[in-house]
Design a protein around this nucleic acid. Sequence first.
DNA 1: TTTTCAATGTCGGAT
DNA 2: ATCCGACGTTGAAAA
Lengths: 254, 254
Amino acid sequence: VSFLLAPSLADACDFAKSAGRRLLVIVGCCRVDYRGRAKSLLDFGERLVIIKRDGSVLVHQEEGREPVNWQPPNTRVRYSLKNGFLVLEAVRSHPRERMTLEFQSVKMISFFNLQDQGRLQVTGMEANIVEQIMENPGVLEPGLKIVATQKSTRSGVIDLFGFDSRGTPVVIEVKRSRASPSAVSQLEAYILDFKHRNRHARVRGMLCAPQIPRMVRTLLANRGLEWREFKPILELTDEKQTTLDRWTEHGRTK
Amino acid sequence: VSFLLAPSLADACDFAKSAGRRLLVIVGCCRVDYRGRAKSLLDFGERLVIIKRDGSVLVHQEEGREPVNWQPPNTRVRYSLKNGFLVLEAVRSHPRERMTLEFQSVKMISFFNLQDQGRLQVTGMEANIVEQIMENPGVLEPGLKIVATQKSTRSGVIDLFGFDSRGTPVVIEVKRSRASPSAVSQLEAYILDFKHRNRHARVRGMLCAPQIPRMVRTLLANRGLEWREFKPILELTDEKQTTLDRWTEHGRTK
DNA sequence: TTTTCAATGTCGGAT
DNA sequence: ATCCGACGTTGAAAA
């Protein structure tokens, strides 16, 4: 850990350069100019600025989850003194974009070496829901068999595709949160495409989400489509593993 | 500015509580547990944690633009000592979500009062593109006349609505970046709604974006819809000149 | 409050 | 590299 409190701009500039590729945090009064996919200007004010190892730059105001200005990873960052300002230039190509910070004053500047091997584990995403249905299609309907996931069609990718107990093809669209009317259009497009490619084929369309509002059900019904409410179990892989370990620990095989 | 370097967890806890509603920054080794719309776990590692006035909490690793874990604004944050950890609990309702940070150690903790009246000004957004087409519809097609923007329909808001040189109505959907297949669904929904409300009306549908991939064109063609590639101008000429000057000033030659 | 859609979206995966 | 879709998307504006 290394830091300076209320340094001169020259000292802050030297300090920033000496940080190398370490995580750098600056609190100070700056103006922000951005030009690239869009263009923006932010007048002077005190902000929290973060420069990461990978070149990401974040400018945070006192409120909001989102940075008010930023550059994504793989941005080249340079520091200089110009016109009495400490200037941070963050430039990237692909697309060509530039963000310039002009610091009038710096309250604090600090860099850190972070030891972090942690990798986020998440569950409850669409892929997890699809997995759970794959493992046990019966949760949607007895006798249902899934034969494909992420099946490509001309109108997009079908989440799940299979056949019901009578051999009728079933197209299933999965949503991780409440289904919206657009999900109905999406499903309908797949169905129309399927019918178009396999003339006269009977096919069922099913929308699967933890919550399906009445309006969406109406839309589905009007189009001869079906729905299932399915709430996935939120379980992380290592928890599953832990559970299995514990199971075998207690003396049972599988 | 107030800060502690490598404080004890007890001192860090008191310090965090004393920060009140000021911007708080903690660098330390923590584990993160989140449960709400989804569920996630992040094992111990050193991270940069930001707690904002409005209750936003951000957990940043050394890389990436996005926080690895977070809570949005209007989250209630509490600090406590538990099981030898400094525990930060960030809870919100609507939806009910909880993020828990357990700090094993703290390298630095600091709070700030930021004076910031700055408000971001941006151009180059979809609204600006719509404006430019409004001012000169000829960029899309000679003789095109725009009569409405943000026209409400049951399936959403149409960006631009007008008539071509032969008096046929034209519905235009505008995208500020590359058009995706979902934009086609969107446009199609508007068209279907329009046809539904004005029986046997002829109507043209047009998707307008700076870039339209092959698959999207196919989707459009299959539905009898049209497209125009249109790249907007980001700013006035004198502004461009200024920016170019600054670019060569600060940038490398060439 | 709910719904809808834009965003400098970001990010990861597949082609 | 381009393309495509999910995201604990976030955020704002309109209904």
